[in-house]
Structure formats: structure tokens, C-alpha cells
Simulated scan of single mutants.
Amino acid sequence: MLFGVFVPNGAFWSVYWIIEILGKAPGIRFLGAFAVQEAPMEKQTALESNAEYEAFVDKFKPKLTTDDCYTPPEVYEVVKNWACAKYGIDPAKIVRPFYPGGDYESFDYSGGAVVVDKPPFSKLVTICKFYLSEGVPFFLFAPELTLFSGRSIFTQINHIVPGCTVKYENGALVKTAFVTSFDAHIAAMTAPDLGRAIVAAQEEPSKSLPRYDYPDNILTGTMMQKMARNGISLEIYQKECAQVGRLDAQLAVKKSIYGAGLLLSTEAAEKAAAQKEAAEKAKKAKKAIKWSFSERELKLIEELGRKAKR
């Protein structure tokens, strides 16, 4: 760090004392008319050593990946209890081999162990293959979006869809399903009761906003927003409507139309209702991409029908 020393005319002795004081301060030396502050060598060396040490240690720290979605305890308990009740699993036999730094292949599965756990999703097929080859029964968390992608093991496991999202401990929201070696004669099944239990386990106390269903003669800004978003045009003339803040039925319960709305004439209401319906159809049309079957696939469907009747 440099300190410039300005020397005005006739101020020689004042500057002399400034230089004397600075010159005696630790870590200060002069270069001509400049005072230079030097960093203490031992402190600088220590900082460099710490930085090198931290970089060295960091190499051995486990790196977080998208597989690091640790299951909330309350969700795991719900899943475990459901699996035990459904398949008659003894809770004392349940093991969880998937933990940071763990090795599921060398884990001890003796004594009739049953795996109920959330594995790394990226290795799910490999893990299922291992358990199937070793004869270890399992009930594993799985990503719903790619649930049926394990072609090599598809016919050996049951795929369970509870229809819910799990918020894992790292904050990730994942549509979660399950794969199991139990009841493998079933290819896929829904489990709405399990889904409801998982949702209930994750619920936090909160005020849910009420949803109102208004007569066709009421039009709100939210309704018009849906129309506009789906490319639907609508014009309501001043003579066809009146601004209204609440309905008489809402007075007694102290409720109102959020943001106010329009009270429409019968003709305007019919026009708005037709546009609302058109908006819903347009919304569905936007989302849906229709695919058709090939001749080969139609023949396969017929073959599956014959098999099912045998």
C-alpha cells in the first residue's frame, strides 16, 4: 500500500515528523517520497498454505449430484408402513443400504433382509438387476417420468404410481413412483391411498384460498385472461354490463368478487359462455399431440387381447 507525502512550501519540519512516525511503524518503508506498507511475510505464507490445504481437502469431499435427494423421514415412514401392510413385510427385516458413501453391492442382506429405500435414480435399473439376480426383495423409490424405461427388467418388477410429488430434503420436487419385486405378475398399478398418505405427510399448516363458482352472468378479469391467453377474442359493451364488487349472496358471509367483475346481460353472458368454452378447447388443443398406432402395433394389441383371454 502506498502513502503519498505532499510537501508544501515552509512545511518541512511537519513532514519530517510524519516521516519519523511512519518510519517507525511496523511493515512501513519509504521509497523516495512514498511510504510503502508491506504485508507480513508469515501471514501471507499462512494464507497461501490455507488455500492450498482447502483445495487439497476439497478433492476428497463427496460431490452432490441430482441423485442427492434425501427422503424426508415422515415420507419414508408412510411408504414403509404402506409396503409392510400391502406385502406382509416384517418391519424388523427392512434395511436401507443407500446412504452417503455406502456400497449397496457389499451390504449384508442376510437373514431375509428386504430393501425399502430411495436409491440414486440414475442407477435404478442397475440396482434392480443386482437385487433380482441376488434374490433380494425390494421396494424402491423411482422417478415417475421415466418409470417404464427399464426395458431389460420390465417384466420382472411391478411399477406403482401413487400420483403424488415428493419434496426431498434438498428442496427438489419430484413426481415419485415405486418399483418392487413384490407381485411382479402385475406390470403396473396405481396406489391412490399411498399417494394421499404421502401428500398428507408433507402438508404444512396453511390457509387455502377458497374457490368460487359464479353464474354465467358474472365475468372476471381472471376469466378474460384465460380467453386472451388461448387466443380467444371477446368484447363486452358498456350497455351490456355493470360493474359489481360482490353478489348479494356474499354479503352475509362478508365475501366479495376478488378484483370486482362485470354483471352481464343475458345476451352478453351467452356470448361470454361460448368464448369460455372455446378457450377451454383451445387450452386442451395446445397441450395435446395426438399419436396414432402403426400396423405392427395394432397387431400387437390384438395378440395381447388373445393372451389375456387364455
Rank of each mutant, 00 (worst) to 15 (best):
E105Q: 10
L247F: 10
E302Q: 03
T220G: 10
F56N: 02
L264D: 12
G101W: 05
G245L: 15
P120W: 08
T146Q: 14
V253W: 15
E52S: 13
F130L: 06
A177L: 08
G10E: 09
M223G: 02
Y212R: 14
L64Q: 00
V174Y: 00
C69W: 02
H185I: 01
G112R: 15
V115R: 12
E204L: 03
G195Q: 11
D248F: 14
R29F: 14
T126G: 02
Y99N: 13
K207S: 08
K86N: 00
I157C: 03
F6I: 13
K59V: 05
Y53S: 05
P91M: 09
I186H: 04
P119Q: 04
V115Y: 11
R306V: 02
S294P: 04
P72R: 05
E270P: 06
E270H: 10
P205S: 01
C241W: 10
K254W: 12
A228E: 10
T71K: 01
P215W: 12
Y258S: 15
A11Q: 04
E54H: 08
C128G: 00
Y70M: 01
L209K: 04
E42C: 08
A268E: 10
A308I: 11
K284S: 14
G88N: 00
V125D: 02
F6D: 14
A35F: 01
P8D: 09
E144S: 06
A188R: 15
V7E: 15
D90I: 07
A25I: 01
K283H: 10
Y237P: 00
A83L: 02
R246W: 15
A187R: 11
T126L: 06
E74T: 03
V136I: 15
E270N: 07
A33W: 07
A184Y: 01
